[in-house]
Simulated assay, not measured.
Amino acid sequence: MRRAAAWIVGVGCVVAAGAVAAATPGPDAVEGPFLIRGVVGEAVTARNLVVTVEDAAFTGRLTSKDWTVGGNWLVVDLSAAAITTEVDAGLQLITLLVGGREFIASEQPPTSLVGERLRLGVDTIGAVAFELPADVDGGHAELRLTDRYSTPYLDDVIVVPLDLDDVAHEDEIEIDRPELEGMP
């Protein structure tokens, strides 16, 4: 009888250890970012950012003043502002997740909103562009924006889903220099 009790206690300990291991959060859950979800056309507020994704379009030719490039580009129009401070306020890391792949917003267009300094309470209006492989022209995607230079730990990340099947295709898109809302 004692032997059976020892086996039952042993099996119970193994089951309890498995339950504890399964319930323990992984490193992403402990140190990962806080995802603040929103939708296209509505303002999404994070710790020091408020961002509104306005529109998106695919193009085969991307231009800005004195600059042109071909390829498969996704251009996202948005507006952003700082909430609490202008110190280090900017969209430093903007990524697009498509089908398990992650793409970083290009710094090639000289008029991109990437890294643009944001003002407190005044929207900066502009665009970001993603150079994508030729096979990425539809599906579901997530646009992720943060004011950190690298993937933030224990900080907010704004997430806006995009249905790439509904995105317009244009022959050419010109990215204008970012401008402050209401300013000429």
Rank of each mutant, 00 (worst) to 15 (best):
N48E: 07
S64D: 11
E172Q: 14
A105E: 03
N48A: 07
A17N: 02
I104H: 11
T68Y: 05
P152S: 09
D28H: 12
D147Q: 15
G10F: 08
S150K: 11
T124M: 08
V39I: 09
D55L: 00
D156T: 12
G115F: 10
P161E: 02
D171N: 11
G71P: 10
A29F: 12
D135T: 05
R148D: 13
E107D: 15
W7Y: 11
I175E: 01
E42G: 00
T45F: 01
D147V: 06
R119Y: 13
L162I: 00
L132I: 02
A16P: 03
E170P: 01
T63G: 10
V11Q: 08
G99W: 05
P109I: 11
I83G: 05
V159C: 05
S64W: 08
L164Q: 07
V69H: 10
N48Q: 07
V15D: 08
V75P: 00
T45A: 06
L162F: 00
V160A: 04
I83N: 10
A23I: 07
N72T: 07
A168C: 01
E181V: 02
E107Q: 14
E31V: 09
S112C: 07
L154W: 07
I8Q: 09
P178I: 04
L118Q: 06
V39H: 01
V11H: 07
I158R: 00
E170A: 06
V51K: 01
E31H: 14
R144G: 04
A21E: 11
V122R: 09
I36H: 03
A168K: 00
E42A: 07
D55G: 00
A4V: 13
L143P: 04
W7P: 04
Q92S: 13
L74D: 02
G60C: 04
G139W: 02
E116F: 13
L120F: 08
D28I: 09
D155M: 10
Q108N: 14
P178D: 06
V50L: 11
P161I: 02
V50M: 14
M1W: 12
D28S: 13
L118N: 03
V167E: 00
L97P: 06
Q108E: 15
V157F: 05
G38W: 01
T84E: 13
